[in-house]
Design a binder for these strands. Structure first.
Lengths: 190, 190
DNA sequence: CATTCCAGATTGTGATCACAATGGAAGTGT
DNA sequence: ACACTTCCATTGTGATCACAATCTGGAATG
């Protein structure tokens, strides 16, 4: 899943099938679906590989995250009761834990879980599905992002998001989500 | 494609394959891809059918169109030279022609072609892909929209879009695109 | 030593088949 | 007459196979 595959490596259907103990038919369908979602690249000859994103593509995906995730957060805001905020705070502590441990995969996974639990309250499944598509496209390059993050210090954008949720401030929530989403990705476009 | 399948009808993989003269394997892959994109619904048992959208889903998809298409239009604005605007005007005349003829499928097709030609100039393929996904999800219900439109009179939102493009007014373009995209769909949510 | 070319191996695609699960219709009991 | 049950046809899934296209490695040639 997110951030587990090395970018640029080539995949074979028979290899994927053998890896999961199945035939090549399920591997083919999964691969084609991921290609349709943009998480994998298929050459004209049909070869499957993980794409390496150019800078303008990263900028585009960052803009998409900003657009969609602010909307999702705003829609989730009136439905975010205290239990949800506390659960988000708990997830955020595991994010900090993953950063302190230096576990890139766990960081990516828990960070996305933080966002997903918030957006699930928006009751907008189509929008959430689009965001997950964007996440999948960003997956292979999220590792690089983690490498360039300053280690041991979790970003405080999540705390800003939690504060805006507690105070029911829509404008502050918009700003917090947008900066949290775009700030990290801009680092990659050096 | 868009607006050609009746909503609520059930599809079978063998039927699709026989319809296109192939085996069921390509039909299966196409169906699963469309399911992944939200254009088709798959029950827990794997049965394929075209979804009928509830009102809140239509509202959600309309919001998505508003969000994404305004961004795409704004990104296309600085690159929209005169030749593109003239081509858009030509497409718009075929849209009006389709409305006057009462051809629902042609109207849907040319209307989307109008939007796509504009958004292609935005040089944002991921964003455009997401919008096309939204269009596919709205496909089965676009026929209903046409039925409730007042016949013979093309909406003037496209003319507003063209005017904003000519005058290079970003704010007016935003408003024109948003109203063009959401106005029609709100009709469906009676 | 570099470049070109050829052959073997590898890969994706489409077709077909066996199988389990599901849906619907017919039949039966009350 | 209606509801429930049962049984068969239909459907999706996964596996395997043949084939064409492609990639890769080394050999031959300049």
């Amino acid at each position: 899943m997110h951030g587990e595959v090395v970018p640029g490596s080539a995949l074979t259907l028979r290899g994927i099938g053998q890896e999961f103990g199945t035939s090549m038919t399920p591997a083919r369908e999964a691969a084609r679906r991921l290609v349709a979602e943009g998480a994998l690249t298929m050459s004209v000859s049909g070869r499957i590989s993980t794409p390496e994103l150019a800078n303008d593509r990263i900028e585009e995906l960052a803009s998409l995250r900003g657009l969609l995730e602010t909307e999702l957060a705003v829609r989730a805001l009136p439905r975010a009761h205290l239990a949800l905020i506390e659960r988000l705070a708990a997830i955020n502590s595991t994010v900090a834990e993953a950063i302190r441990r230096g576990d890139a995969v766990a960081y990516i996974r828990t960070n996305l879980e933080f966002h997903r639990t918030l957006y699930l309250r928006a009751q907008a499944p189509a929008m959430l599905a689009l965001v997950e598509t964007v996440w999948l496209q960003l997956g292979p390059t999220m590792r690089k992002l983690y490498g360039r993050m300053r280690q041991g210090r979790p970003p405080d954008s999540h705390r800003l998001i939690l504060a805006a949720l507690r105070n029911r401030e829509e404008a502050a929530l918009r700003v917090a989500v947008r900066t949290d989403v775009t700030k990290g990705l801009r680092l990659l476009m050096t």
